Amino acid sequence: MSFGTWLFTRLHGELVGTDSFGNRYYVDRRNKGKKRERRWVLYKGAPEASKVPPEWHAWLHSHVGQPPVQGSRPKPWQKPHLPNLTGTSQAYLPPGHTSMGGHRAKATGDYEPWTPA
């Protein structure tokens, strides 16, 4: 977070809530409740937009009027939110990836590779 963001938040921001990752969400108290509220997030750790859970994303982009309720229970079919892991050691690598040995199971069924005539 830059000094300017910190100062703007101290002068004009009102804390609305936090998420499970520790990110803090703010609204500009000068235009709170008006048609076009200014909303922003201060990330805990590295600023990575994929660390914003879907319910907070909807609030940030004014798709919903009220911030998510703290401690609300997810639906039984919902999985916990995961940030984008691309470029990290925990990134998904498919079975044929070169970092996974470069070998995958043979194709089955009606697959026939195209060969030029």
Rank of each mutant, 00 (worst) to 15 (best):
T108H: 04
G101R: 04
T98R: 15
E37A: 07
N31C: 14
K79E: 12
E112V: 12
T86C: 05
H57F: 03
K35W: 14
P95F: 07
W6A: 11
V16H: 01
P95M: 12
G65S: 12
T98C: 14
T18L: 11
G33I: 01
R104N: 08
F3V: 15
H57L: 06
T5R: 13
G22R: 11
L15T: 00
W40N: 03
Q70H: 07
S99P: 03
T18I: 13
G45E: 01
V16A: 04
V69R: 08
A58Q: 05
P67G: 00
K51H: 15
R36V: 08
A91F: 07
L7Q: 06
T9G: 09
R36N: 14
K44G: 01
E112G: 02
K79L: 10
S89Q: 12
G17M: 04
R73P: 02
E37V: 14
Q66K: 06
P83K: 00
K51T: 10
S99R: 12
S99C: 13
Y111L: 06
S62F: 09
H103E: 09
D19S: 04
R30T: 14
H57D: 11
P113K: 10
H57R: 10
K44C: 05
G4C: 13
P76V: 01
S50T: 11
S99A: 08
Y25T: 01
L60N: 02
A46D: 14
H12C: 10
W77S: 07
P95R: 05
Q90M: 13
S72M: 07
G109P: 10
V16S: 02
A91Y: 06
Q66F: 05
V16T: 00
R24M: 09
T5Q: 09
H61V: 08
P116I: 08
G71M: 08
L42T: 09
P54I: 01
T5G: 15
R24G: 06
R24V: 06
W6F: 15
